[in-house]
Amino acid sequence: MHEVNERVEKLAARFEQQAVQDDDAGRLTDETVALMRSAGVVRLLQPREFGGYEATPGEFYRTVMALAARNPAAGWVGGVVGIHPWELAFSDPRLQRELWGENGEKADTWISSPYAPNGRARKVDGGFLFSGRWPFGSGSDHCDWAVLGGIVTDDAGNVTMPPDMRHFVLPRADYEILQDSWNVVGLAGTGSKDIVVKDAFIPEHRTLNAHEVAEGILAERHRPGNPLYAMPFGVMFSSAISAATLGIAEGALAAFLAYTRQRITIVGSRAAEDPHQLTGLGEAAADLDASRTHLLATMDRMYEDVLAGRTIGIEARAEARRNQVRASRRATDAVDALFRRAGGGSLRLDQPLQRHWRDVHAAMNHLCNVADSVYEGWSRDQFGLPAGIRVLV
């Protein structure tokens, strides 16, 4: 177990205690963020020379799961914000020094997103003028920078062909967080608020070509020979979403066990002795274990391939995405089976099970957990047809 994971386990009770406050605040509280910083969650995939751990992908995903099981919002933010140092590790070295300091003195810099190409960037001398609005900036209140998706236009504002899609990296002074934009039924504590940019100047070195990110070109240019950063972007980011989803589901299992141990049914019997409860519990636990194994084994195997110098082609990437979305679906179905057995008392807001149930369903609405296009893409590849870009989102 990685030392960061160990610290998360030691802080488990405190993370659990903060979950209600995070939801009520509509963002992670300062206390939750302080715990995450002390554990080092967001620095797991960050380069060592900038104060990171350069942990393996599997160590990162296991830590995200452990955190999400105790505090869904913290686990979600840990996964999303925690993947950004991995990508920015192969950005222009000037940007890396701006983010983390010359020698890692700003190692605890947090960076939000999203990557959706909602922005428009007009080329000017030395860079771009950039504007747009993006929903779903998870953890943005606690971040000092944001990486935002956008498309380059001509002087008239028309998108050039083929589209020049980039990730634009901005300091906090260059964008606005809309504080009233996150009113939701699930994952409320993530504070995934809208971000607005109006004609911000972005130097060229603070941009990353989206195609070069996705195909590992930037990683080979700026981190040659480093297997961690040679992992495929589409699979790494999507698996961070899935890891948080599975962690939330595992937390639901723990909440169901704690609740059922004390529960007396309407006929006066102990729920823990009811065959209906016990069979459902056993099946759900097996499915959750299968989902965890499915995701982690896939990512561990892919990392072993990278370590061995093998190329990760479209077939392996499509298979990894297929496994990822299936693991998330199986885990969510298991949570539903538990919640159906938990009775009316589980609806009370002081019961953790209802929060995990709401949060896992909110997680399933993330694009990376939408399965149909992924299944279709994998199947097309099996028949020698183009898999399509959505399979790698």
Rank of each mutant, 00 (worst) to 15 (best):
N158M: 09
V4H: 15
Y53C: 08
A210N: 13
A320T: 07
P203Y: 10
A55T: 05
N118Y: 06
H294Q: 10
A249F: 02
A19W: 02
A244N: 07
A363Q: 11
V33N: 01
P232M: 06
R263K: 15
R322T: 06
L218I: 11
Q18D: 10
L246W: 06
G26A: 12
V64T: 14
R270I: 08
L349Y: 05
R62V: 13
E3Y: 00
V374E: 12
S140R: 01
A25G: 05
V335Y: 12
A285M: 10
E283P: 03
A188E: 03
H222W: 14
G251D: 01
F50R: 10
V235T: 03
V8A: 12
W100H: 08
G137A: 14
N226C: 11
A107N: 09
L295P: 04
V64W: 07
I83D: 00
V169L: 10
E16Q: 15
R292H: 10
G26T: 02
V197P: 00
V169D: 10
G82E: 00
W100F: 15
R166M: 12
N209V: 03
W100V: 04
A331N: 00
G26H: 08
L349E: 03
P275R: 03
E102P: 02
P47F: 08
E376D: 09
A188M: 13
S112L: 04
M165H: 09
F15A: 01
S291P: 01
T332K: 02
G191N: 03
L218F: 13
D23H: 14
A146V: 15
R221I: 05
P163E: 08
L257K: 15
E315A: 15
Q277A: 15
